[in-house]
Computed example of a mutant assay.
Amino acid sequence: MNQLKVGATPESTTGLLAGVRVEAPARLHLGLLDLAGDLGRRFGSIGVAIDEPVLDLTVRLSHGFSVEGAEAARVARYAESAARVLGLDRRIAENVAITVERAIPAHAGFGSGTQLALAVAAALARIAGARFDAAKVAADLDRGARSGVGLTAFERGGFVVDGGRGPSSLVPPVLARIAFPRGWRIVLVMDPGLVGSHGTDEMEAFKSLPPLPPERAAHLCRLTMMKLLPGLVEEDIGEFGAAITEIQEVLGDHFAPAQGGRRFVSPAVTEVLGLCRAAGAAGVGQSSWGPTGFAIVPSAKAARALVDYVVMNCHTGSDLQFLITQGRNRGALITPLA
Rank of each mutant, 00 (worst) to 15 (best):
R90K: 15
I46G: 06
I46Y: 03
S62P: 00
L228C: 12
I296W: 01
G163M: 08
A76W: 07
T152A: 15
P214Q: 10
V310L: 08
R126A: 14
W184S: 12
A121Q: 04
E68T: 12
V195D: 04
F264A: 05
D236M: 10
T292R: 04
E101N: 13
L275H: 08
G196M: 05
V6F: 01
G157I: 06
L88K: 05
V120A: 06
V174I: 14
G109H: 01
C276H: 04
A258M: 10
S168F: 03
E234V: 09
A218P: 00
F255Y: 13
R84A: 15
A281D: 02
G164V: 07
G274V: 05
K136Q: 14
H198M: 13
S288M: 10
G199A: 15
A70C: 01
I178P: 11
V187Q: 08
H219V: 04
R182T: 13
D191E: 07
L212I: 04
T114S: 13
K227F: 14
R143D: 06
A258H: 09
V54R: 14
A128E: 03
S45Q: 10
H219A: 12
V96L: 03
G15E: 07
E80Y: 03
P105L: 11
D56E: 13
L4N: 01
P192E: 03
A139H: 15
L17P: 04
G199K: 14
Q259C: 05
P214I: 03
R177P: 11
I104S: 04
A279C: 08
E204L: 15
A117Q: 05
R143V: 11
Q259S: 10
T292S: 12
G129L: 11
G238D: 11
R262G: 10
Q259E: 09
A138Q: 09
E155Y: 05
P298A: 08
V161Y: 08
A138D: 07
G290V: 03
G327V: 06
L118N: 03
R74M: 04
V22H: 10
D253A: 15
G196H: 07
N95A: 00
G238M: 09
L116R: 02
M190V: 09
V272Y: 01
I247V: 13
Q115E: 07
V297S: 07
F65N: 00
R146I: 14
L220Y: 01
I334A: 05
V137S: 09
F132A: 12
R90I: 12
Q321I: 06
G7F: 10
F65W: 00
A70S: 07
V59C: 05
R91M: 00
L33V: 08
A49M: 07
P336M: 08
D162E: 08
I247A: 04
S168Y: 03
